[in-house]
């Protein structure tokens, strides 16, 4: 029972990591750099919901499933817009520059969002209580307790993964995304509008991050401008673990990290080392599979 309980907790946590990791890996797929600001988009998603909830509550009942959906959708839109804006302002001017330049810029953007968010005129540095978006209950199955939040997390993630799979594999824009990630120049020559596809990728990844941010906030005691850092880091590890640039890899990596973290946290003596465990696993795996679990090792042509 204890095992099942941990399994459910781990899966819920892992699902959130998976959603964030997908954003990292999608951007890496098209632009080949790690978007450090992604974890802050997650935070912005949670804060969007925080400020939207009272407004939505005036029209729709909150907590309720319908109200939560509206809040979630609006937060997704806001974050998608912000994601596109970040790409347009900070990354696009550097498209032809060395990847290191873009990486450092991404770190700069991340710091900018975090510090601006901490300013008292913006969000403030203090922790805020996240509003209840959905009626919370607990289901008891024998000694097993399943929180409705965990169920929401699992179901939402499954739906989003299916949706993402559909977009990437069954739509024109998804095909273009894959083409761009495969070979940007060739895609451009085939008439793919690279800028549009990259913007779309950012929008999609940021919307997923917004959902992840809200789901994470539902489970966390509160939200603050630095709340994205830890889950962002884990998701980042998950993306690399799965093989960066690889979508199923990111989802798998997220689940692996979430589960391992939960199970390790349950072992007394190890729980204090939670923050380091994900990294330790990553390093171990990279020693044996240098391109991650599902990534392919590319050999330089001589």
């Amino acid at each position: 029972m204890e095992f099942l309980q941990q399994l459910i907790n781990g899966l819920a946590l892992g699902s959130i990591y998976a959603l964030i990791a997908l954003g990292y890996t999608m951007v890496y797929g098209v632009l080949r750099f790690i978007n450090f600001a992604h974890s802050d988009v997650l935070m912005l998603g949670a804060f969007s919901a925080y400020y939207l909830a009272p407004a939505v509550a005036r029209v729709l009942p909150l907590p309720s499933i319908g109200g939560a959906l509206v809040v979630g959708l609006l937060a997704c839109l806001i974050c998608a817009g912000l994601g596109v804006l970040i790409e347009r302002l900070a990354y696009r001017p550097l498209r032809s520059r060395p990847k290191l330049t873009v990486l450092i810029t991404a770190i700069g953007v991340s710091l900018f969002i975090e510090y601006t968010g901490q300013h008292r005129a913006v969000f403030g540095a203090d922790t805020k209580r996240f509003p209840e978006l959905m009626p919370g209950t607990e289901f008891h199955l024998g000694s097993l307790i399943v929180g409705s939040n965990d169920l929401v997390v699992l179901v939402t993630t499954l739906l989003l993964l299916a949706g993402l799979w559909f977009i990437v594999h069954r739509t024109k824009v998804g095909t273009a995304m894959r083409a761009v990630s495969h070979n940007q120049q060739a895609a451009a020559l085939m008439g793919v509008d690279i800028n549009r596809i990259i913007a779309f990728t950012f929008a999609l990844g940021s919307a997923l991050a917004a959902v992840a941010g809200i789901l994470y906030a539902l489970k966390a005691p509160g939200i603050d401008p630095l709340m994205g850092v830890q889950p962002g880091l884990r998701a980042f590890i998950a993306a690399v673990l799965g093989g960066i640039g690889n979508l199923p890899g990111a989802a798998l990596g997220g689940l692996v990290i979430g589960l391992l973290e939960t199970f390790a946290g349950g072992i007394s003596g190890l729980s204090n080392y939670r923050d380091g465990i994900a990294f330790a696993i990553l390093i171990l795996i990279l020693l044996f599979r240098p391109a991650g679990l599902l990534g392919k090792v590319t050999v330089e042509k001589v």
């Binding site: 750099f33 790690i34 990486l103 204090n272 380091g276 990294f279 330790a280 990553l282 240098p290």
Partner: peptide, 28 residues
């Protein structure tokens, strides 16, 4: 030693991870 096989972003994350592991160990 891991830099024998890892490059670029992968090496960056391993070194980042190493720093975090050190911090966690010290913290405990």
């Amino acid at each position: 030693i891991p830099s024998l096989r890892l490059k670029g972003d992968y090496l960056a994350i391993v070194t980042l991870g190493f720093g975090e592991i050190i911090r966690v160990i010290v913290q405990n």
